[in-house]
Nucleic acid binder design. Sequence first.
DNA 1: CTGAAAGCGCTTACAG
DNA 2: CTGAAAGCGCTTACAG
Lengths: 343, 343
Amino acid sequence: MSNVRMSDVAKAAGVSSTTVSLALNNADARIPQSTRERVVRVAQELGYVPNAIARSLRTRSTRTIGLLSDRIATTPFAGRMLAGAQEVARENDHLVILVDTDGHPEIEADAIRALGNQQVDGLIYASMWNRVVDVPAGLPDGTVFLDCGPEGGGYAAVIPDDYEGGRSAVLELIARGHRRIAYVDTNEERPVAAELRYRGYLDVLAQESIDPDPALHVFGATSAQGGRDAIAALWRLEAHRRPTAIFTFNDRMAVGVYSGAIRQGIRIPEDLSVVGYDDQQLVASELDPPLTTIALPHAAMGRWAMEVALGIRVVDPEATTHLMPCPVIRRASVGPPPEYLGS
Amino acid sequence: MSNVRMSDVAKAAGVSSTTVSLALNNADARIPQSTRERVVRVAQELGYVPNAIARSLRTRSTRTIGLLSDRIATTPFAGRMLAGAQEVARENDHLVILVDTDGHPEIEADAIRALGNQQVDGLIYASMWNRVVDVPAGLPDGTVFLDCGPEGGGYAAVIPDDYEGGRSAVLELIARGHRRIAYVDTNEERPVAAELRYRGYLDVLAQESIDPDPALHVFGATSAQGGRDAIAALWRLEAHRRPTAIFTFNDRMAVGVYSGAIRQGIRIPEDLSVVGYDDQQLVASELDPPLTTIALPHAAMGRWAMEVALGIRVVDPEATTHLMPCPVIRRASVGPPPEYLGS
DNA sequence: CTGAAAGCGCTTACAG
DNA sequence: CTGAAAGCGCTTACAG
């Protein structure tokens, strides 16, 4: 880009490179204000742009963080996570080098090597959904795991608090008077989140002295179709056994519950309350009525991970994985149970 | 990370650094195979990792491309674009430095400076939707514009072919026999895509000798609500003036058309065919029936931009903006018009 | 076939 | 208060 070097500035300002460096970096309080100003002015006039590569070589710090992620292409959540991490990096004058490994171990290995060569100051290993991952060979100590936990531990990690999220969802429904609450679970290779949310569901019922009805724990594909299937199954129950509220594993399934409900003439929230999970952008808020849901705290997790990677936030790598709260996003899909079933 | 240098390898292998460098980089055919192999083996044994920063300083090439983007957090399309660019970078042994400017000009200016300091070999300026952007001050020549066009030209740029996309959508409907086709347009500060798609719509009608009915050009918010409003408006027309097919500006609006249709007892595609735009992930394919739509070619545009940035694809910066085709994604929301209106 | 040496553009003890 | 000099870890003419 620029081809004016520090020595050019030095010559033009009639000082040494030492002084230019010290002045430009505010590194030495002894440089008099007047000299400093002159140097800064001359640098500006010449269009001097410091060469970060040269500085990095000398200081052994690149002000750069590597972010390794799987399949950012195919998930709508990736953006919030990247943006959160990005933001913290920027606030601290760091750049992020992003590598999308698309889940391929060989690409991952190459990327870890490339990022090492590049002398990144830190590394974040991100997954697009909460799971336990094998630690890739050659992963540097101090790497922070984002939205996943390293098999065997030993690294800082942050994941959503899916258990508490599950509790919040059910509590939200209980608070409005619901007692017959279904959990629409996933039957695809069940992610850890599904089990945690289910436990949250069960524990809230127990604490409220509600006997869980196994018929209200239904399974479906993690998609709108799964939600449609679920509500169909639920409505095949005798009327008094049907739920007055449904908590779905994710928003996509809630979308299916909505369309299934409309087809059956079930009104939301008058006849049926629905709480989703994810707060999927351009989806949850666009449903009619807008969906009450539990947000996956991607931006907050991204920020947390970057803070740890930068050393702004200190964390014991042997400590247990950090759980990020999943806030309740209240919209309009929850109301009191219909009167004929009123508690 | 690693602390073994090239000189350590040289010493251990009993050769000079020159030879190590030449051997490791396959840079000099004169190095005998045996020496090369020994050097490689020793390097491996010592766990030698070349310092890319030092190499960059020397060669003045960082094998790094800067990707400047606005609000990747809030758009579900960002991923596909990033992934496409990422992929090409990886295939060519380059790393991408991502900066999300969130649309703030000051952040943008800082980022351009930071990327310049970092001596990136190329720069991509990405927008999350097709628009004309002001060229930020200090943007290097050779920057490539992704999903936007630079005001005043002078740079390579790629955007979706929204005009042809609009034509394809309408053609898809015409092919099935529809003649009363509505275009659900956006009334929010109208993006260039909205006008282009509308022109495509108009031109196909003209070419098929169909008189455009102004009542079938309706406007709504760029959201599901906009789609719901649109179909409500359309169904307030007398029965014989209603459309048998709807082309919506985007998939979100198509979602609204679906839910509005269900409420009115309109079946898709039996009573009404629908074509969207975007191929929004986890949305278009999940609707019931799955939505036929025109895909925004984000991955292909991302690849194109990176190819140009890397110099793999040569392009005249004064040439007109490259138009990337938007493929038709055929699913199940299009059928023949209902018989009572059959053409 | 191989090595000594210069140099990329900075920062930073050290000396004055 | 300021500068000469070393050195970060490579690559690459150049010499032999």
